[in-house]
Structures are given as structure tokens and as C-alpha cells.
Nucleic acid binder design. Structure first.
Length: 576
DNA sequence: GCCGTTTTCGGCCCGACTGTTTTCAGTCG
């Protein structure tokens, strides 16, 4: 049983306990365990297999009772406690609580008194006025719930990060132009670079909050203003995205951005931690519980510092071990975009890219890179104008010529060679041997069963010419599920065959994903961060790839393309 | 149900909003 499935069971148990009216702390314990398991970098089945059943207890938030339940789930695929709990309630009732505005109390009353157990039945009961007749319910509440049901139906809940970033950049640029806003930055899951985003949260400081808020609600891309007060507004953009802007006073900025960056779980852990030390945290500052005195903070750094903690990078604020480590000063400096010395996966016009070879190389040079690998598709990918052997040979010649011309950057001859269904590669070994960098990737037969696709990919990695496995899971966020591959086996093969795993910065890919990156890093698997750019502009996706690496706790030393050219070529088995 | 530089028992994050109530329950982030 996978971690995500185990987490779902505990999430559901928490929901059922809420309906039952259990004490909130028990409910929170299950919720916390679910979150922790969901973000755990190692499959618990592997963990138990390799380190024994006791290893579960080491995970924070997992004690005796929950570890027993995990073992039962791993052994039998079922959990007696969960089955019994489910049987106490009508089927499907916890889904009612997915509707904003419906909590456990309302869900129970609706079910008991009105026989409502699905969202459809709920909608009907609102329309014929039955819901409003319940105690503490009224016309207005019912109407709001109905509105939420309708938006749930039309709106995709979460949007891929990459779609949101350019929108945010635009808004920030316009606000800077039109108002006297001083600092402005995103908070929330956007600042943490989660792979999908719900709403956009922006925070800033300004001498004229009201004027700034007004200008914000009047931006051309705004179609609807939901809330507008003196310090805060919520608007809806043309594409349906909701954006909140909050203007705060300078000396409150630190505590507020900390609070709104989250994650929720991180804040809970941080507040529990502070409470044990006699401090109470809120979005306004830090209260000393014995004196009642409140301290305010202009920056987040000061806020964490007052708690005796390192500044915790937003990317890892998930409510795991980060607070504990920050206390010991044990959070390392994570990789940054400026550490990256080159991009190892880009396309040009020759295959399915938009810019010429020289344009890409010059753009890379202008970014300050030392090297860039041109990695076109191979012939098997006809749809992407994959290069025939002859065309690849002629590209090698062109690159050699360009290398003589452009002095300050080294263009590496590469390929993104297709891994065929049987694990063989789409170019002969002899030709692959002439290249500086060989990136291999799966682009077809993605629904092969687990054992088959795992063996296929490992076979390709075992080819001595292959240096990097690109987008290992092949997922497209919100569009295509990852292939069913044994990632742990792939990582072990990577160690044996000296193959690097790619962290692909394309917004719909972000592949490897955060928890796999963390696991690969812990195992010592070499990693690269690449953009898979199909245009000059996409070279900027490096920031997404790097943020994803940071979510996997990577330092520069874990990332191959932070190394100088000579070391990189050594890894690839070339001598420069 | 979890956890321990106050505790192996008795705590457990904090504040705001909304609509329904006449002082607050329920929900949310």
C-alpha cells in the first residue's frame, strides 16, 4: 500500500471522528499523521521492510496506536478500526464536508434530520428551502453554501504553479507602475512553490494603502471584486483565478507574511513549539505569555530569530522536522538559481523548439552560464521532428563551428534520446559515443505494467553512454498520471550505473517531484536541474526547477550542473 | 492520539468572519 493511500485512510478517519464529535486533539493527531505520511520521502512499506516496524515510531506524530494501524494496512490492505468507523455513518457523508461552509455539525444534521448524504441531495435541499430550516441555518447561509457548490463544479480546484507565475509577475509589475507600493511579494503556496496553487495571496506595504487597494481592484485583468476594505481586497481575474492583496504596516510585515506563507501545518508545529517555551504566536507578532507583552517584527527573519530559529526557507515549511532542525541550526543552505552553471536539456528549431542554435547559446551565455547542452529529440519521436542520424551528425558539426565562434560559453553536443518500449535506445551506441551528454527519456508506451517499465528504464540507464534520465515519472500535472515505475529501484540503478536523475523545470512536469528528489538525494543519487526549454524565454524555468530541488532539501553539492564544466564532463565520462 | 528542558498525565495554535443569535456556534485559513 502506498503512502498516499495510507494518508487517505487517516484523513478519512479524521473526518469520521469529526462527525462523531470526538475531542479535537484526537482528530488533529490523525490529520497530522496523514500529512506527515503523505510528505514522507520513503514509502512506509520499504521503511518497514528495511528498518523494521520500530522505524515508524521515529516519525514525528506517529505513536503506538497509529503505527499499529499502519502495519495492519501494510499487512492486510485493510484496517478494522476504519471499517467499523465507516459503518457507523451513511456512505459518502464525509464528502459533504468538502463543500466550503459545511463542517461536521451541519453535515450530521443534514444527514440525520433531512436524509442528505450527497452533494446533489444537499443542493436540492437548499433549493426547496429545507436546509435553511435547520437550527443555526438561515436563508443567507444556505445561499452561500449553494454558491460554493456551484463554483466547486465549474472551477478546477488547484492550478499548476507554472500557469500562475506569469499572471502574478504581471500583477506585481502593474502595481509597481501604478501605485506607490513599497514591498510586494507572494505568500501562500505560491511562495512555497507547491506544484499546484489554489488562490494567489499577495502582501505588501504602502504609504497609501487605500489608494493601492483601489488601484488593485481597477487593474485591467480584474473582472470581479469580491471584497474591498481599506487594507485588503479579493478579486477574480479573467481566467477565474482569485487574488488577495493585503497591505500591512511595516512593523507588522514579518509576522504577517510568516503567517500567510504557511503551510498551515508548519504554523501549527511552530506555534506548539513556541507555546512550550512560553510564547504565543499570531499574525500580529509574538506574545510573551507570562507578561502579555506583544513584540512586532518588520521581517520574517527577525520573527524566526526571536524564536531562536534559523530562517526556514518557505519551500520546506511543511510541518515536518524543519522546526526541530532550525533550532539546532541544522538547515543547510539550499541550492539557488545563481549556483547553476548550465542547462543540460534544451531544444532548438531543429526539432520542436522555437529558437535557433545560436540564439539559445547566446541567451544561455547572457544568463551567465558556463555551458549549455543542446538535446534534440531522436527519430522515434517523429511528431517532435526528431533528428535522423544524418541530421544529428550535421548538428554536431554546426555546434563545433559555433563553439569556435562563441568564446565565453561551451555548447555541449547532446541528445534527448528516446527509450523505446523494449528499453533499447533510438540511436546506435557508436553515435551516442560521439556526444558530450546523453539524456534519455520515455515518451511512449507509458501504461506498461510496473515490472516491465521499471526494467525498461533500468536497461536504458545501464547503457554506458546514458548520463541523465529525463522526467523520470513522465507525469503531466493535472493531465497525465505518472507511469507506474518502481522509483526506489530506479534510484538504486542510478547509483550503480552512474546515471543522474533530472529535475525537469517545465511547469506541467516538475519531474522528479519534491519527495522523490529528497529520497534520491538521501541515497546519494546525482541530480541535475534542467529546463527542457523549447524557447529562449523558457530558460527562465530554471527558477521552478531550482525551487522544486529546494523542496527536496537539495544543496548545491547535490546538483551536478552547479559544478564547473570539467567536473561535469568527467561525470559524463568525457575529458573536456 | 501524541508527547515531554515545567509534565508518563495533562496538556494540546490562533484569530477572524458570518449569520444567527441576544452571547456565540460553526467554519475557515
Amino acid at each position: 500500500m502506498k503512502n498516499s493511500e495510507i494518508a487517505e485512510v487517516f484523513e478519512n478517519i479524521a473526518g469520521l471522528l469529526e462527525l462523531k464529535g470526538e475531542i479535537p486533539f484526537k482528530i488533529r493527531a490523525y490529520q497530522k499523521a496523514a500529512r506527515t505520511i503523505e510528505h514522507h520521502p520513503v514509502e512506509l512499506s520499504k521503511l518497514v521492510e528495511e528498518s523494521g516496524t520500530e522505524a515508524l515510531r521515529e516519525i514525528p506524530g506517529i505513536g503506538e496506536a497509529i503505527s499499529k494501524k499502519i502495519l495492519e494496512l501494510l499487512d492486510t490492505g485493510k484496517l478494522k478500526y476504519y471499517e467499523e468507523l465507516k459503518s457507523e455513518f451513511p456512505e459518502g457523508i464525509i464528502r459533504l464536508m468538502d463543500v466550503p461552509g459545511i463542517g461536521p455539525k451541519t453535515a450530521m444534521r443534514a444527514s440525520k434530520e433531512l436524509g442528505i448524504n450527497t452533494v446533489e441531495e444537499l443542493e436540492k435541499a437548499i433549493l426547496d428551502g429545507r436546509l435553511a430550516s435547520l437550527p443555526r441555518m438561515g436563508e443567507k447561509t444556505a445561499e452561500n453554501i449553494l454558491r460554493h457548490i456551484r463554483t466547486m463544479k465549474t472551477k478546477d480546484q488547484r492550478i499548476p504553479l507554472g500557469q500562475v507565475l506569469p499572471v502574478v509577475d504581471d500583477i506585481i509589475a502593474e502595481l509597481r507602475q501604478r501605485t506607490d507600493i513599497r514591498s510586494i511579494e507572494p505568500a501562500g503556496s505560491l511562495r512555497r512553490f507547491r506544484e499546484t496553487i489554489g488562490d494567489i495571496d499577495l502582501m505588501g506595504t504602502s504609504d497609501d494603502p487605500e489608494g493601492t487597494i483601489r488601484a488593485f481592484t481597477q487593474l485591467p485583468q480584474v473582472v470581479d471584486v469580491l471584497v474591498m476594505g481599506p487594507k485588503k481586497a479579493s478579486v477574480v481575474l479573467r481566467d477565474g483565478l482569485q487574488v488577495d492583496l493585503r497591505i500591512v504596516e511595516d512593523d507588522a510585515y514579518g509576522a504577517l507574511i510568516q503567517y500567510f506563507t504557511g503551510s498551515k501545518q508548519h504554523n501549527v508545529v511552530l506555534r506548539e513549539w513556541a507555546r512550550r517555551r512560553g510564547l504565543s504566536l499570531s499574525e500580529y507578532g509574538i506574545t510573551n505569555l507570562s507578561t502579555g507583552e506583544v513584540e512586532r517584527f518588520a521581517t520574517e527573519e527577525e520573527f524566526y530569530k526571536r524564536l531562536g530559529l534559523q530562517l526556514i526557507p518557505p519551500e520546506i515549511r511543511e510541518g515536518g522536522v524543519e522546526v526541530e532542525l532550525a533550532e539546532k541550526g541544522a538547515i543547510p543552505r539550499f541550492v539557488e538559481v545563481k549556483d547553476i552553471r548550465g542547462d543540460l536539456h534544451v531544444h532548438t528549431k531543429e526539432s520542436d523548439g522555437q529558437n535557433s542554435l545560436e540564439e539559445m547559446a547566446v541567451a544561455a551565455r547572457d544568463r551567465g552560464y558556463e555551458y549549455i547542452a543542446i538535446t534534440e529529440h531522436s527519430p522515434g519521436l517523429g511528431i517532435a521532428r526528431g533528428l535522423s542520424e544524418e541530421r544529428l551528425r550535421s548538428q554536431i558539426a554546426k555546434i563545433e563551428e559555433l563553439n569556435r565562434k562563441l568564446k565565453s560559453i561551451r555548447i555541449l553536443v547532446g541528445t534527448e534520446v528516446d527509450i523505446r518500449a523494449d528499453g533499447s535506445l533510438d540511436y546506435p551506441d557508436e553515435l551516442l559515443g560521439e556526444l558530450d551528454v546523453v539524456v534519455a527519456a520515455v515518451h511512449s508506451s507509458m501504461n506498461q505494467e510496473r515490472a516491465k517499465i521499471t526494467a525498461r528504464v533500468i536497461k536504458a540507464m545501464s547503457n554506458p553512454h546514458v548520463d541523465i534520465l529525463a522526467h523520470p515519472s513522465c507525469r503531466l500535472i493535472g493531465e497525465r498520471e505518472p507511469v507506474d515505475i518502481d522509483m526506489e529501484a530506479v534510484f538504486k540503478a542510478a547509483l550503480e550505473t552512474h546515471t543522474a536523475m533530472e529535475i525537469n523545470g517545465q511547469p506541467q512536469r516538475l519531474d522528479l517531484k519534491d519527495i522523490h528528489i529528497q529520497r534520491a538525494k538521501d541515497l546519494g543519487v546525482p541530480l541535475v536541474v534542467s529546463t527542457d526549454a523549447h524557447s529562449i524565454a523558457q530558460l527562465n524555468l530554471m527558477r521552478l526547477g531550482v525551487a522544486t530541488a529546494r523542496r527536496g532539501w537539495c544543496e548545491a553539492r547535490h546538483i551536478l550542473n552547479t559544478r564547473p564544466l570539467r567536473e561535469l564532463l568527467e561525470f559524463c565520462g568525457r575529458n573536456g
